[in-house]
Design a protein around this nucleic acid. Structure first.
Lengths: 207, 207
DNA sequence: CTCATGAGAGAACGCTCGTTCTCCATACGT
DNA sequence: ACGTATGGAGAACGAGCGTTCTCTCATGAG
């Protein structure tokens, strides 16, 4: 029994180390670019143990995405949860992005990357990526509604576009201060969406 | 001489067919997921000929991205070029996106996908993707300036975020009508950026 | 003390894929 | 007509990788 228990503990520890190593390597270099042997080496476990924890690379990839999803959602929720005022909660999303983009190992969104790399050939990866984004979209929807947007769905979609765009631009280095730019755009859209009169119509009819 | 000439012609024809096949397959399934043999089969040429046209898969990938870059830029320029009014030219970008997203084989941005898949391990791919986005960013900059934005750089960055976000959301199906949503956001930002008084500051000081 | 159980290290296997080589047919020059 | 060069088809080669197998050793039970 104590042998069983110790096995359990070691097994969990091994699983944790494998998942950590996989997350770091997959995220940094792409999924297809890192082999099981590199993960084994980085995790400091044997190949046998690795396959005991995860029966295949596909399973490890799924676990990687799932873990990443949970961590990211939790971090965003914590960041947004620190502020109470509804409009500020919307912009807090972009503060979170700014913090994330400043991370040393930032390399874009795992899900956008994985979707671009494996989406067409791996339905599980595509589904995981879509699920992650659906969660994000829903969170933005409630934030938009709580902020008093006339059309919360429309604002949520626009905020989602800004978030995705900021992530991509930050990953590729194509915009200066993408999080701040997205945040100021979000404030402008929020203003427009909560203004008394109109919402989406351009003002000037013609020149 | 005539032999040489015919070789040239056949060689160009083969090159065109190889590049077409590669573009279609790389874009649809991802770069690492398609092998040289599949390209050879789709192009209807021999492997020897394929390697005469492109000495390696890396070279073919670079040619694919280059070709895609030219075609995309030309299509966007044509679409925008059809309208004269500066503000309408900005929103024409999103009309172009809507048209593109409606394409049957649309599967996101080749460069975002390629960057996510091979950016960390292939400097040429990363450079091609960045160059493509730099061109786009510059075009948006001139459009923003011509539309009379108070801070053309800021508006150009925001438009870029909307474009990138719309492409990603369209590829993953996470927003409804991403091009239209991005277009309406762009109009709102354009309004804010060309309003007489302020530009980027949120209006209400506090509740 | 002995032996079975399980872990670790890494060799081995099978497959894929990029790239090259071989063989054969065909067409052209003389 | 004959030799030669060019291109096509596909076998072959070598490397990488996911996965499994083997060998060895330590450890704990009886």
């Amino acid at each position: 029994m104590e042998a069983t228990r110790r096995d359990r503990i070691d097994g969990d520890e091994a699983r944790r180390r494998v998942l950590d190593a996989a997350e770091r390597l997959f995220y940094a270099r792409g999924i297809q670019a890192v082999g099981m042997d590199q993960i084994r080496e980085a995790a400091g476990v044997s190949l046998k143990r690795l396959y005991q924890c995860f029966p295949s690379k596909d399973a490890l990839v799924e676990a990687y995405l799932e873990h990443r999803d949970r961590r990211w959602n939790r971090a965003l929720a914590e960041h947004v949860g620190r502020v109470a005022e509804p409009r500020e909660r919307v912009t807090a999303v972009f503060g979170f992005l700014a913090e994330w983009f400043g991370t040393a190992d930032f390399r874009g969104c795992s899900f956008i990357n994985a979707f671009g790399e494996l989406g067409p050939v791996s339905p599980p990866v595509a589904a995981a990526a879509r699920a992650h984004k659906r969660t994000l979209r829903e969170r933005l929807g409630t934030l938009a509604a709580e902020a008093g947007a006339a059309d919360p769905d429309a604002l949520a979609d626009q905020l989602l576009l800004l978030v995705e765009g900021a992530i991509v631009a930050a990953a590729m280095g194509t915009a200066t201060g993408p999080a701040e730019r997205a945040g100021s755009a979000a404030r402008a859209l929020l203003d427009a969406a909560t203004a008394p009169g109109h919402a989406l119509v351009s003002r000037r009819p013609r020149p």
